[in-house]
Amino acid sequence: MTRPKLFLHVGLHKTGTTFIQRNLIVFHDELNSDGFFLPGRLGRVEPGHHEIAHLLHREGPEAFVDVVNDQRKLDKIILSAETFSAVIKDKNFWGPDVYGPLNSSFDVTPIIFLRRQDFMLESVFAQLTKFDRVGSHFKIPRYEYDYTRVVDLLATSFGEESVKVIIYRDDEKTDPWLEFCKAVGLDVDRYRSNTRAENSSGHRRKTLALSQIKLPDRASGRFLEAAMQMSDAIHNDEKKFLTPVENRAHILKENVAGNSLICDRFAVPAEAREFFTSSQVDESWVAPEPISDFEWKAFIQDLAVMASKSAR
């Protein structure tokens, strides 16, 4: 008996995952007509199958298989949640007891997007500013930037020939949604979106401003981030990185060999490989100017206007 095909998009974080998940909802009917089934999100309002990933971790592979098969109406399934990458990296959880039942029930094709570590370092810092968990963005655990371990786990679990590795490009030459479509065998022209993924973290001085606000909870962080993006009160200095040159150069040096090995193993296209294995960083870095009192006052005024409009 032929096993159902499961395309398991595991992230990583900060590689256009939310954009992909939103498009999966937008193109839900087209996907169904092409034979692809998207399981329900188990009560989650926002895009992504994070609750199914939590179920796998909390209750085990049998519960995961049951919840997917109980819903399944077609033999090609797409699950997408960057939470799966966290589950996979849990060395106390992942192993034959987990991937054995998954392989018995499904023909699994894992899909993973990888982002060059210097851009990831900056993006993770911007993300953490929303959740009041920054401290120092140079102290974020190093394993988040060593991609070889998670790729090795996917290859060991499901077979190296099954793993799809896609390089997330920060030079805006590729669209993560269209790359995802190619990975699952969809007609790119049929699924071409009218929008591109946007950098929701904004420019670096907005990120700096957010990092200096004491946030009581995640919802407040998201609200203030959205407000910051709508406001022009914080001046854009047109520079990309908050992270100094030496830190970005160091993290690239640490990981360039691993990146090259991944490219060799998974036949990464030449242009993407050149980008992913580069150890060159922008040497023109200067520290951002502190957020001025004038900018803070202007932002507070913008916040008051936004709050007034939303209350109407």
Rank of each mutant, 00 (worst) to 15 (best):
T2A: 13
V10I: 13
L12R: 13
V26I: 05
N32W: 12
L38S: 09
G40M: 07
H50N: 10
E51W: 12
E62A: 14
A63T: 10
F64C: 07
Q71V: 07
K73H: 10
L74M: 13
K76T: 12
L79Q: 01
E82Y: 04
V87M: 03
F93Y: 12
G95K: 01
V98H: 03
N103D: 13
S104D: 15
I111V: 15
L114W: 08
Q127R: 08
L128D: 09
S136E: 04
Y145P: 04
D146M: 00
V151W: 05
F158T: 11
G159A: 08
K164C: 09
K164Q: 14
V165E: 02
Y168I: 08
D170I: 01
E172P: 00
E172A: 03
T174L: 09
V184R: 06
L186Y: 02
D189I: 00
R190K: 15
S193H: 03
E198Q: 05
T207K: 09
T207Q: 14
A209I: 00
L210Y: 01
Q212E: 11
L215N: 04
R218L: 00
Q229C: 01
F241E: 01
V245D: 04
R248W: 10
A249R: 13
L252D: 03
L252T: 02
V256N: 04
G258D: 14
R265W: 12
A267M: 11
V268G: 08
A272T: 10
S284I: 02
W285Y: 10
A287D: 06
E295D: 11
I300L: 14
D302A: 05
S308T: 14
S308M: 14
S308A: 15
R312G: 15
